[in-house]
Nucleic acid binder design. Structure first.
Length: 397
DNA sequence: CCCAATATAAGTTCGCCG
DNA sequence: TGGACGGCGAACTTATAT
């Protein structure tokens, strides 16, 4: 194990509701609804929302009803991608070893540049200053010898903080924390651990590894035991290949009409396959998930003989997966389309056209180009021309 | 009663092959 | 022919994270 704390975990504070974002000219003075979840203005209970004068938290559906003309800053809004790209660029100006975890979080390994630029704390302060200057966003930085401890440290000092945990202090820092703080322990695992009488990370550390493995499975048991002793071998990888692409949509109201559900499925297939093609992938495995009114969820998938990126082909697979469920007017809340087993398409576009069936591949290509030129959704299958169902989200009830 | 969207990892079950 | 067994990939579920 390295004994010097050179791993940084940087977490933007209030990224999705940052003052700089709301101050953007195109948003100034307009009602803005932030977030996408059941409590769309998720931030009401947090420091950042108070600072911004946001008081109301409500489901996004209600927000749409109350303020239909508001600007909805959902997580996939392009403004966030812009800011994220700028921020990651700042990180990369300090070291190439930047591993983004999401739009607003990244790990950095500064071991190799410390002689060049300065010690990790100095680097962290420089980064915080630059992000504040350029984006008017505060961020919190955890510095430690491992990813895991760096991540907990940044949570610990949030907001607008910096916390370094030296190698010698790791266990003192870690052990009093609740098991929930272990990365990978969610509600289910917490419950299992609690039945074993384990409440703190120290408790987990002092439990025989075999006991943990029996209760949680081999891999998770061993992993947690290691983390509890501050052992985390994972390195900072600047790049990981993508493994799946998916698109999902929760309906404004539950649907039970097969025709309507298939229309949504086609729309989601469009969304997913377009991203697939943008990234130069084909997929061999097509999966769907269906969530019912009671929130239970099932999934089905099919692996094809040959990978494809053709909307038509993928939709037909998704459709047959759906129809094989033989749902008879069951109330459905969400469907999703997932593409897995991704393969990078070879250089030759000709080969793609020949092997994929010229007609559909060409029509996809033409549509992608048109959508790029005229904006997403300007060209779409005839089947989708009827009024989209999602707009029913904010009416009635 | 209410519970987003996207991605990853790992566990289980099952069928196929030798 | 019958069966136990192991390996393997596919299908599916569950858990977790942001």
């Amino acid at each position: 194990m390295r004994d010097e704390a050179t791993i940084l975990h940087i977490d933007m504070d209030a990224f999705y509701a940052s003052a700089s974002l709301i101050a953007r000219p195109e948003l100034r003075g307009k009602p803005v609804v932030i977030g996408a979840g059941p409590r769309s203005v998720v931030l009401s209970a947090t420091y950042e929302a108070r600072a911004l004068g946001i008081h109301a938290a409500m489901p996004v559906g209600r927000a749409r009803r109350l303020a239909p003309h508001a600007i909805f800053l959902e997580p996939d809004h392009e403004l966030y991608a812009d800011i994220s790209a700028s921020v990651m660029e700042v990180f990369r100006s300090f070291t190439p070893l930047v591993e983004p975890l999401s739009l607003d979080e990244a790990f950095l390994d500064v071991a190799g540049v410390r002689r060049l630029i300065g010690d990790p704390v100095h680097i962290a302060e420089s980064i915080r200053t630059r992000i504040a200057d350029e984006q008017q966003i505060t961020c919190s930085v955890g510095i430690a010898t491992t990813k895991f401890v760096a991540k907990i440290a940044s949570q610990h000092c949030k907001p607008d903080g910096l916390l370094q945990i030296a190698g010698d202090d790791v266990l003192t820092f870690l052990h009093p924390l609740p098991v929930k703080a272990l990365w990978g322990v969610g509600p289910k695992t917490e419950e299992v651990l609690s039945r074993l009488g384990l409440r703190t990370i120290a408790d987990v550390a002092h439990t025989p590894k075999t006991t943990l493995e029996r209760a949680l499975g081999q891999s998770a048991g061993e992993h947690l035991h290691n983390l509890a002793w501050g052992r985390d071998e994972r390195e900072v990888y600047p790049w990981e290949p993508e493994k799946s692409i998916s698109a999902a949509e929760t309906f404004g109201e539950d649907l039970d009409d097969e025709e309507a559900i298939l229309r949504e499925l086609l729309r989601l297939t469009e969304r997913a396959t377009q991203r697939l093609r943008e990234r130069g992938f084909k997929a061999r495995t097509i999966g769907i998930s269906v969530r019912f009114a009671d929130f239970s969820t099932i999934s089905r998938s099919k692996t094809l003989r040959d990978a494809t990126s053709v909307t038509h082909e993928i939709f037909e697979t998704a459709r047959s997966l759906y129809q094989n469920l033989h749902l008879d007017r069951v109330r459905v809340r969400l469907v999703s389309v997932r593409l897995e087993n991704l393969e990078q398409v070879g250089e030759s576009a000709e080969q793609l056209l020949l092997t994929q069936g010229p007609k559909w591949a060409e029509s996809d290509q033409a549509r992608d180009q048109a959508n790029q030129r005229f904006g997403g959704g300007s060209v779409r299958p005839a089947r989708l021309l009827r009024k989209p169902t999602r707009d029913t989200r904010d009416v009635s009830k």
